[in-house]
């Protein structure tokens, strides 16, 4: 079997013709395999959904009970219409998975979003040798080299120690980044309560059910301004009354570039990302050594160039989809 017979790009997203299911479809489909709970991957309204238990719970948290939900733990193969399918850890957020498809000697891996840096909230990315590897490219430029997470946490804690009377409010994506920040803070010895918004608290409860120790978390909405003085608050936007003398930070891979940090008008930019940076992307493509890599979810030009230097075959998924499927 040839790779494009096992997996092809369609307007609704990646589709496996023999298995008759989509992966992270962009619209409601009959049967979907979902890599992880972020909203650009886990849309609602599908007829049936296959995903890790944590991802299914995240979808239920956002949209209510998932119709036709089938939970599949990591590295446990199932057969769907003759296609062997299993989920391998992607190291992105809790429950995030790569989808491995295999049929008639051909193997494709759809990695979803992934990173290679250790993350206390999820098992590490497992490289799976394959014929086709579909990779994200969020930070696919050599300027993106995320610093070690520990050094960013150290900067945050240094600021908290140097300005003990000030509230530190760090903007962070509500699913994944927030929980990782909490775990990293706890690992670095920060034991005081951390204040969160309602939605983040609900997701943290889900993380707790999956064995994640997040320490004491309190609702920011119920706190008096006096409580927040000197406190740590993680926010994901929206209305939140913060003390006047708050140190505002933001945790994102884009913060590694000073220009982006400046545009956010924040005082404490933390370059902390759940996506692979440039060295991790290059390393992963070399490790997986797929016959062909399809790049999506970001910019492809630099990876195409790097692949050429490395003697690898890389194509932009957009170009493949543009060919109209053969």
């Amino acid at each position: 079997m040839r790779a494009h017979e096992l997996l092809r790009a369609t307007p609704a997203g990646l589709y496996c013709p023999p298995g008759d299911f989509h992966i992270d479809p962009t619209r409601a489909v009959a049967r979907a395999v979902i890599t992880h709970g972020h909203s650009d991957h886990a849309r609602s309204g599908h007829g049936a959904v296959l995903a890790t238990p944590a991802t299914l719970e995240m979808m239920a948290l956002r949209h209510g009970a998932v119709r036709g939900g089938q939970a599949l733990v990591y590295n446990h193969p199932v057969v769907v219409n003759g296609v062997t399918l299993w989920l391998a850890p992607a190291g992105h957020v809790l429950g995030s998975a790569q989808v491995v498809l295999q049929m008639a000697g051909c193997r494709a891996v759809v990695s979803g979003d992934y990173k290679r840096t250790a993350d206390p909230t999820c098992p590490p990315f497992e490289p799976v040798a394959c014929d086709v590897f579909v990779s994200e490219a969020t930070f696919a430029l050599p300027v993106f080299r995320h610093p070690p997470p520990e050094s960013e946490i150290a900067r945050l804690l240094h600021s908290a120690a140097l300005f003990p009377e000030r509230c530190h409010a760090i903007g962070a994506y509500v699913l994944g980044k927030t929980q990782r920040l909490i775990r990293l803070l706890r690992q670095a010895g920060y034991e005081r309560p951390i204040y969160l918004q309602k939605q983040a608290l609900a997701i943290c409860a889900l993380y707790r059910r999956h064995g994640q120790d997040l320490g004491t978390l309190l609702p920011a909405a119920g706190a008096q301004p006096g409580d927040l003085a000197g406190a740590m608050v993680l926010t994901s936007g929206g209305d939140l009354a913060l003390p006047v003398d708050t140190v505002r930070g933001f945790a994102s891979g884009w913060m590694g570039i000073q220009e982006h940090a400046r545009r956010r008008d924040c005082e404490l930019p933390l370059a902390l990302s759940d996506h692979a940076d440039w060295p991790e992307l290059v390393m992963t493509l070399r490790q997986v050594a797929a016959g062909e890599t399809w790049v999506t979810h970001g910019r492809a030009d630099a990876l195409l160039r790097q692949a050429k230097l490395d003697g690898l075959r890389v194509r932009a998924l957009a170009d493949i989809a543009g060919e109209g499927g053969h």
């Binding site: 430029l141 050599p142 300027v143 080299r145 570039i257 220009e259 630099a302 160039r305 790097q306």
Partner: peptide
């Protein structure tokens, strides 16, 4: 690599910042 450098500079805009990154 010159092409990668050019793409990077195009994205960041600032020479010293790009080189540092």
């Amino acid at each position: 690599d010159a092409q990668l450098l050019a793409a990077s500079l195009g994205f960041v805009g600032d020479g010293p910042e790009t080189a540092a990154l």
